[in-house]
Write a protein that binds this DNA or RNA. Structure first.
Ligand SMILES: NC(=O)c1ccc[n+]([C@@H]2O[C@H](COP(=O)([O-])OP(=O)(O)OC[C@H]3O[C@@H](n4cnc5c(N)ncnc54)[C@H](O)[C@@H]3O)[C@@H](O)[C@H]2O)c1
Ligand SMILES: NC(=O)c1ccc[n+]([C@@H]2O[C@H](COP(=O)([O-])OP(=O)(O)OC[C@H]3O[C@@H](n4cnc5c(N)ncnc54)[C@H](O)[C@@H]3O)[C@@H](O)[C@H]2O)c1
Lengths: 227, 227
DNA sequence: GATTTGATGTGAAACAATTCACAAAACAAG
DNA sequence: CTTGTTTTGTGAATTGTTTCACATCAAATC
């Protein structure tokens, strides 16, 4: 296996997420093994790409027999470190925070929101399955549950200060729903999820599609951009 | 201006979103003009990249004087077709749908959720600022408001059927929050937003970062992957 | 108004990602 | 056990993206 380069990981890794989604889907349909072209077709990429990506991550199949779905999924679990449990804190229990805190798919994938926090005293609810704490207890909880990843769902005006506070208390990775680009010191991973942008990009591509000015296969181009 | 190729658009366009976010931020801080390196620094890319990207989209600045933020933003509005209003429908008024329907940033960016839909009769609320209709009225509303883009926030099991129904009724673009890869005919744009994946990718990178096995500058790498 | 300075805009060069093409492996059939 | 078929795995070729380098221009200074 060629040692993968810093760069090679990038796009392949992103596609590994995509492949997994496809595999899960195929599995529920009763499929047990796939060929590179089956998966490729499902994921909307080429078979070459699938094999090349697997090659980067040293995922092996059976020549002629293709790949075993369970094997693949297990291998991918390892890649994403999902053998372990991951404790997470959620800051900001407004509309978005509430919805996220009720989302059961996180738990199904070994990601547990162990506590939530809010600045508003009326929202605090210490005795509960999923407590809502004041910010003053952040450090204590992060330390107790060895939390390394947080979700920020506070208004955009507070997002940076909340982020700083999190980083100060040992958080290393953040999924941020506030529409601001958070500034962090080196060594911290920020994933800004901007739902307005997601909508807008669809609008952009739909517009291109309907005005039909020169750009063909927009939907494929779009897919390409994402994966 | 060199005619941009199908491909050249891809990554540049994605960064244009990023630049705009930065510009908005800088503007609220009272800044009025930027140089390529100011913006680059803000966005975490190189100045060359900024200029090259602008070049793709034929965005011009003043030699020596840099770029005027308002000009830039206006230019970007055009790129994203935000001079027009965009009517949107939202399907599935559960936790996620409710949160999204209350999100005021969409309106601020000329994207109006004109109606929502749910299969559950107890949720229907026809007389309201933002009505919740039964699915039977989908076609009527889509036609009346010339809706082309929809948001899917129904359980994963129903997402595909809802999507099919939307496409049948003239929807051309979808932002899908259900964790399934929707299948659509050619000419339809799907943006699958998978929040579990967003969290998992942060966990992945945090893990890489902390185990420190060979990969340096993960946070930059991460940024790179996204933009 | 000539000269210096500092920034843009963009081909060309360097680098990265994808696709091609085919050897190697696995299995089936004769 | 040999031959034919099918699919993987991966260097090599191609295609796409980023960085470099510098001509070009606009403003400031003399
Ligand atoms: N609602 C949505 O659908 C949606 C969609 C995309 C993005 N967002 C973004 O997510 C964030 C939250 O949105 P929302 O609609 O839930 O807003 P919200 O106003 O309903 O909730 C914000 C919550 O954060 C709390 N908060 C405020 N400052 C805080 C601080 N310094 N520390 C801790 N808690 C604090 C508030 O008390 C409140 O409970 C916003 O940045 C918004 O732009 C929301
Ligand atoms: N809650 C979250 O934070 C969150 C986060 C990410 C993704 N998601 C995804 O978003 C989707 C919705 O999640 P949720 O938590 O809001 O679920 P939910 O169960 O609270 O809401 C789903 C809503 O969809 C309606 N519905 C069901 N079938 C329908 C159909 N065929 N046509 C129209 N409406 C229908 C239901 O009546 C319900 O109101 C799910 O696919 C979920 O995986 C949710």
């Amino acid at each position: 296996m060629k040692q993968f380069t810093k760069q090679a990981i990038k796009k392949s890794l992103k596609r590994i997420f995509l492949y997994r989604a496809c595999l899960v889907r195929l599995k529920t349909m009763g499929v047990e093994k796939v060929f590179s072209y089956t998966l490729a077709n499902e994921a909307g990429v080429t078979a070459d790409q699938v094999r090349k990506d697997f090659s980067e991550f040293n995922i092996k199949g059976n020549k002629r027999g293709g790949y075993d779905i369970n094997d693949l999924l297990e291998r991918m679990e390892k890649i994403f470190h999902r053998n372990k449990d991951h404790n997470i804190v959620l800051i900001g229990m407004g509309n978005m925070g509430m919805a996220l805190s009720k989302y059961n798919k996180f738990v199904q994938r070994n990601m547990n929101i162990v506590a939530t926090f809010d600045i508003d005293p009326f929202k605090h609810k210490i005795r509960s399955d999923l407590p809502i704490y004041p910010m003053s207890r952040l450090k204590e909880i992060i330390d107790r549950f060895r939390v390394r990843v947080a979700i920020i769902a506070v208004p955009e005006i507070s997002a940076q200060e909340v982020c700083d506070e999190l980083v100060r208390n040992g958080i290393k990775g953040v999924v941020n729903f506030a529409p601001v680009l958070l500034k962090v010191p080196p060594g911290i991973v920020i994933n800004n999820v901007n739902l307005c942008d997601e909508l807008e990009s669809v609008i952009y591509y739909v517009h291109q599609l309907m005005s039909g000015d020169g750009l063909k296969n927009i939907e494929l181009l779009y897919r390409d951009m994402k994966y």
